[in-house]
Amino acid sequence: MRDARERVRAWDVEELWSFEEPRPPAGPGRLREVVQSLGHELDCEHVAFLLEADGWPAFMQDVDLFGTEELLGSPALETAMSLVAALEPEALDRAGLDRDSLLPIAASTTTIDFFVMPVKPGSPPVAAQVIWLAGGEVERYTSFADFFRHMIAENLDEAESLRKEHAETGG
């Protein structure tokens, strides 16, 4: 992901996007605090990420990947939860989702795009799907790792688009 973000940065001559490093790893105590606060276990792949990086601001364009700070309650989480609450019942039905079981894990700072994981209180932490929502389902990923791989690809696509735009304008 760092390499993909660096490629975007190299071609972002108009400075469209912010570029930040992932946060330092979350500690096991902090993760227990999140689990206690949420009332359910976290997805095992998501936990593995948080143990490497406790969130990543602007990890894809203007989308922040939440860390424990957000999961414990923050304005970003509140905004994402309001987007969950605003989803039309028909959109939830089409996607086969239960509003009350959606945990936001990432969100745009400027659009209605956000990412959720369905959670099942009382279930063991297993690899859960990640679902991209923007008024309805945009895309679904089989796991956190699959989601992360796709976001790397999205960054690489963005870098290529910026490179082509730069070449066309002669910049």
Score class of each variant (00 low, 15 high):
Glu78Phe: 13
Val126Lys: 00
Glu88Leu: 14
Ala95Gln: 10
Pro104Ser: 06
Asp113Gln: 14
Asp100Trp: 01
Gly96Cys: 12
Pro75Met: 13
Ala134Asn: 02
Ala80Cys: 11
Phe144Asn: 01
Tyr141Pro: 03
Leu87Thr: 09
Ala107Asn: 00
Ala128His: 04
Val84Trp: 05
Gly122Met: 01
Tyr141Gly: 04
Ala76His: 06
Ala91Arg: 05
Pro118Cys: 10
Ala85Cys: 11
Pro124Arg: 13
Thr142Lys: 09
Thr142Arg: 11
Thr110Pro: 13
Gly96Leu: 12
Phe114Ala: 07
Asp98Thr: 07
Ser74Ile: 11
Val116Ile: 09
Thr142Tyr: 03
Ile105Gly: 02
Ala86Tyr: 13
Ala106Trp: 04
Ile105Glu: 00
Ser82Asp: 14
Leu71Lys: 01
Ala134Gly: 04
Ala95Pro: 07
Leu77Tyr: 00
Ala76Ile: 10
Met81Cys: 14
Ala91Asp: 10
Met81Gly: 11
Pro125Phe: 11
Glu137Thr: 14
Glu139Gln: 15
Gly135Ser: 09
Glu88Cys: 14
Pro118Ile: 03
Glu69Cys: 13
Phe115Glu: 04
Leu65Ala: 03
Asp113Ala: 15
Tyr141Lys: 00
Leu102Lys: 05
Tyr141Ser: 00
Ala95Gly: 10
Val138Lys: 05
Ala86Pro: 12
Leu65Met: 12
Phe144Ser: 04
Leu103Arg: 00
Ser123His: 14
Leu71Asn: 06
Asp93Arg: 12
Ala107Trp: 05
Asp113Tyr: 12
Leu71Ile: 09
Tyr141Cys: 06
Val116Ser: 01
Leu65Arg: 08
Ala134Val: 01
Gly135His: 08
Leu97Lys: 00
Pro121Gln: 10
Thr110Cys: 13
Leu92Lys: 04
Leu133Trp: 00
Ser101Thr: 13
Val84Arg: 02
Leu103Pro: 06
Ser101Met: 13
Ala106Phe: 07
Ile131Met: 04
Ala86Asp: 11
Glu78Ile: 12
Ser74Pro: 01
Leu103Ser: 03
Arg140Tyr: 09
Thr79Trp: 12
